[in-house]
Design a protein around this nucleic acid. Structure first.
Lengths: 167, 167
DNA sequence: TTAAACTTTCAAAAATAATTGAAAGTTTAT
DNA sequence: ATAAACTTTCAATTATTTTTGAAAGTTTAA
């Protein structure tokens, strides 16, 4: 396999993986492309390599920047904008999990808290509902915190120790 | 908020969360419904509560069973089938991560290994590609293994210790 | 200013994914 | 064997999401 083919395969695979995890394909593809580019890429080149429209490129680049995992760059003497991806994978993981937590987990937790706090009659059905949603609240909260801690600690000795123990 | 409203809110929220994570809305809703039901539910009742067609219910129940997080049950004297969800949340997490790993992460790893193993000329561009995809391979592999270990250990003392340390 | 070079926006179109419902399939009771 | 009770399948429909492209917006240079 030669370079161009490999690069394309990577971009396609990353795009497919993205859609399986609720991230739009083009967004994941642009990110993949920038991840493996050794220098900043212009919108023109992104459009060209991925065969997408200007509007699509613009919107998904904006989304990636909102996630904090793609940055704009300016080159001296050049009028147009260039883009690079966060390439430190630990940093990338931290940003993605922070963002998903903020956008999706935290709001879900709020609802879980609400629905698990209703006053119930003593029917088995209602009791079970409260019990189960309470457990779910605790579980999701714990998992959410754990992700925080893992990403926070994974560069220091404690994280490394934990990883070692778990291996 | 009274029970029925809370239950509906929970099912809707879980469904929305599902779609944000690449799981179809109805599938997540059925799962939510079964999670908070204290007894097995018939297909008829699922169709009724979620206002969905028979075909939809059938297909998504099959998918949930394929994931190993919903079970069929038979009641004595009853002709029709009833369904229950895995209600132990640790067990649920284990099954979901095993399944996503098998279906999505493992195939992605295979591709990552492939594309990171190409022979490259000594252009900076190609070198960077190989370096970056290799790092990504290592990272994803480590994360995948870690999930395994966390889910595997989270019911025993070591897991509890780790959780405590991380708190 | 003005105009060229570039980016963003968003309504319409296209692509993709989910859902329906009725026919086909299966199981059980008689 | 037959029919009733139930489930599965899948082509067609519907809903949702993504993408396009051209007009509007912005910035920079002269």
């Amino acid at each position: 396999m030669e370079f161009k083919e490999a690069k394309n395969k990577f971009v396609q695979t990353w795009g497919a993986l993205g859609s399986q995890w609720g991230i739009n394909k083009t967004m994941a593809q642009i990110h993949a492309l920038l991840m493996v580019s050794n220098e900043a890429v212009s919108m023109e080149d992104i459009m060209d390599e991925l065969q997408i429209s200007r509007g699509n490129a613009s919107m998904n680049l904006r989304a990636l920047m909102d996630w904090g995992i793609v940055y704009k760059e300016y080159k001296a003497g050049e009028r147009k904008e260039f883009f690079t991806a966060e390439k430190d994978l630990d940093e990338l993981a931290v940003k993605i999990s922070r963002e998903r937590s903020k956008r999706e987990i935290k709001p879900a937790l709020k609802i879980l808290k609400e629905v698990s706090s209703i006053a119930v009659k003593d029917s088995a059905e209602e009791k079970h509902f409260v019990e189960q949603t309470s457990k779910l609240y605790d579980f999701v909260l714990k998992a959410d915190n754990m992700l925080d801690k893992i990403t926070e600690f994974n560069e220091n000795w404690l994280g490394k120790l934990v990883l070692k123990i778990m291996k």
